[in-house]
Nucleic acid binder design. Structure first.
Length: 347
DNA sequence: AATATTTGACCAAG
DNA sequence: CTTGGTCAAATATT
């Protein structure tokens, strides 16, 4: 089982290598590039087959415990060196979907954001940095409801409905930019937190007004690992359900050709891959999944979801990503501006 | 002009 | 009282 993980991670690493070698590869014959793709695809393909080969009974165990064997981080040292897949920075209580979402998202973001659009701003109509994670089907619903809490409850501490994930920040580019997760957020506050070196930022959904979307999140860098953000989500997005759906829907569409996968991924992930575990926050429904970009099969049963997920992730990642035309605009501008970002500290 | 962020004040919970 | 979450005015960005 361990080698399966290793395999997957190895694939990821190759992808990462590819990412960093992109500039060089640009000057190389295209077949070199495609060879690289082959390698990666191969690995994921193998992983897929292994997954499929697993006895059905072991499928359920594919959940968190599968990826987080124990609290002992020793077992997690597959490829600790991988910048984007820093396992050690992963909260062991996270479930598979969240891990995948953050890792894959970040990986993709790394590629796209830093290689394609170093400036966080794109001359194209697509906006990858917004779509990569595109779907954030995480449940995070207020099962407890906050009905007409109109009055007294302006803020409550420690929300039990909150879900916290950790997502690695790209080392290149602006590390200050909080991880993009497909939704549009508006910052409404920032606060120094007592024992943290870094301030905590508070965001609410941009469409709060229009759609009464209650979703919120707070982002904070970890003390010991500034390259990791801790993101706590609160409240469920309702803004996607409107017929005039704002944000990520259309973005997803326009980006479909670039990476149909993360969108699909999200769809599957939303199906509660590891429902039972991770504190099983009950109502996971958010169904942002309506925004499947292209019809990669459409529905997958929950159980199979586990298995297809990886495979499809790989599939979509490299099938679409490697498609000829996308390489076109890969290299035009490629300055990597570092911004080490001085840390501030409070006494 | 509209929209987003910054930042100190405000307020509830502990 | 302290702390953290939010508000809202001022400011910045688009």
């Amino acid at each position: 089982m361990d080698d399966l993980i290793s395999l997957i991670l190895h694939g990821c690493r190759l992808a990462k290598d590819l990412e960093s070698n992109l500039p060089n590869l640009a000057n190389q014959p295209p077949n070199l590039l495609s060879r690289s793709f082959d390698d990666i695809i191969n690995i994921f393909h193998t992983a897929k087959e292994r997954l499929n080969a697993l006895p059905p009974s072991s499928s359920p165990s594919l959940s968190p415990s599968f990826f987080y064997p124990a609290q002992t981080s020793t077992q997690l040292s597959y490829h600790p060196s991988h910048p984007h897949l820093n396992l050690q920075s992963i909260d062991p209580t996270l479930n598979l979907q969240e891990w995948l979402r953050s890792s894959v998202t970040q990986a993709m973001e790394g590629v796209i954001q830093t290689q394609l659009f170093p400036d966080h701003k794109t001359p194209f109509t697509i906006r990858p940095h917004q779509t990569v994670a595109d779907v954030q089907a995480m449940d995070v619903s207020d099962s407890v409801a906050r009905p007409g809490s109109s009055s007294s409850q302006r803020h409550r501490r420690s929300d039990q409905n909150a879900r916290t994930i950790r997502v690695p920040a790209p080392r290149i580019g602006n590390t200050e930019i909080p991880p993009e997760d497909g939704f549009t957020w508006r910052k409404y506050g920032q606060k120094e937190i007592l024992h943290s070196k870094f301030p905590r930022s508070y965001y609410r959904c941009t469409h709060q007004k229009l759609y009464q979307c209650p979703a919120k999140k707070q982002v904070q860098r970890l003390d010991d690992d500034p390259f990791t953000f801790e993101v706590t989500y609160n409240g469920e997005h309702t803004c996607h359900m409107s017929s005039t759906a704002p944000s990520s829907a259309e973005i997803t569409q326009s980006t479909a050709m670039l990476e149909p996968s993360p969108a699909n991924l999200g769809t599957w992930l939303s199906m509660d891959v590891g429902a039972a575990a991770a504190g099983g926050s009950g109502s996971s429904s958010t169904m942002v999944g309506g925004y499947r970009s292209s019809g990669t099969g459409g529905d997958v049963s929950q159980k199979d979801g586990d298995q297809y997920m990886v495979a499809n992730m790989a599939d979509a990642m490299f099938n679409s990503g490697s498609s000829s035309n996308s390489m076109e605009f890969l290299f035009p501008s490629m300055d990597e501006k570092w911004k080490p970002e001085a840390e501030e500290k409070k006494d």
